[in-house]
């Protein structure tokens, strides 16, 4: 038993040394990532294990046909398929390894959270401005003056200044923006703007202005009313 263990250990050690110290020094190569070394060692190991443990007795209903297929004994018409698989398997392993290790050529993936959770003090605030036609009208006026260059006169996010901004200004007519949100959420977003977003909202990219520096709260509440009315949406209510 002791001797039987020595050979695998030596082989594994040699393989590791080859991957770690020999291969990286071949011209055109580089340091091999740890995950890849593990994959190579795993393949080597499974080869060794099978080599060491497979015995003549290991035949049963599951294993028998597969064994015959792999060895190609009396499989007749299946022979081409066997060769196909024997060629395909190494090719597939090589291809996947290439994909996994080829240096990435694309910019970092960006998973911006569009609607991150608001700070606690901005949940459940009610709009203190009475919902009168005059207030809605006034809100729409402010919207036209301050918001429409980006969010569009039609509330569709296609204002004349929108094109260069990435992420684009929100489209309020789209049912997945303000219709899904509470008025208090909008109050937070309008007051604090893009720079008020938490890290998952990628604040450094947002062009949404921080309106608290320019507009009084009362105007913001009126704008919210005008925005919902103009976009033909209703705020999500408190559940």
């Amino acid at each position: 038993m002791g001797r039987a263990l020595i050979r695998p250990i030596v082989i594994m050690g040699a393989m590791y040394a080859f991957l770690k110290f020999v291969l990286p020094n071949i011209p055109g190569s580089a340091e091999i990532p740890a995950s890849l070394i593990i994959l190579y060692l795993l393949l080597t190991l499974s080869g060794i294990i099978i080599f060491e443990t497979l015995s003549a007795e290991s035949k049963d209903a599951f294993w028998g046909p597969m064994q015959r297929f792999l060895t190609g004994e009396n499989i007749g018409g299946l022979q081409p398929l066997r060769y196909g698989i024997l060629v395909l398997f190494p090719v597939l392993v090589g291809w996947q390894t290439y994909n996994a290790t080829a240096p990435s050529d694309s910019p970092p993936a960006e998973n911006r959270v569009i609607h991150p959770a608001p700070p606690g003090e901005y949940t459940g605030l009610a709009n203190p401005v009475p919902k009168t036609p005059e207030n809605i009208m006034q809100g729409k006026g402010f919207y036209a003056a301050f918001c429409s260059p980006c969010h569009g006169a039609n509330f569709d996010g296609k204002g004349p200044a929108a094109r260069g901004y990435n992420p684009p200004p929100a489209n309020f007519a789209d049912p997945t923006t303000i219709a899904m949100l509470q008025e208090s959420y909008l109050f937070w977003r309008i007051k604090k703007g893009g720079v008020g977003l938490p890290i998952e909202g990628m604040p450094w990219k947002s062009a949404m202005p921080r309106w608290e520096l320019e507009l009084p709260d009362e105007w913001i509440w009126k704008i919210i009313m005008g925005e919902y009315d103009g976009a033909h949406q209703t705020p999500r209510t408190w559940e």
């Binding site: 580089a30 190579y40 080597t44 392993v93 090589g94 390894t97």
Partner: peptide, 13 residues
């Protein structure tokens, strides 16, 4: 290096 790694993996397989 990606080609080298792929070659090694294929040979191992």
């Amino acid at each position: 290096s990606g080609y080298v790694y792929a070659g090694v993996a294929a040979v191992l397989a």
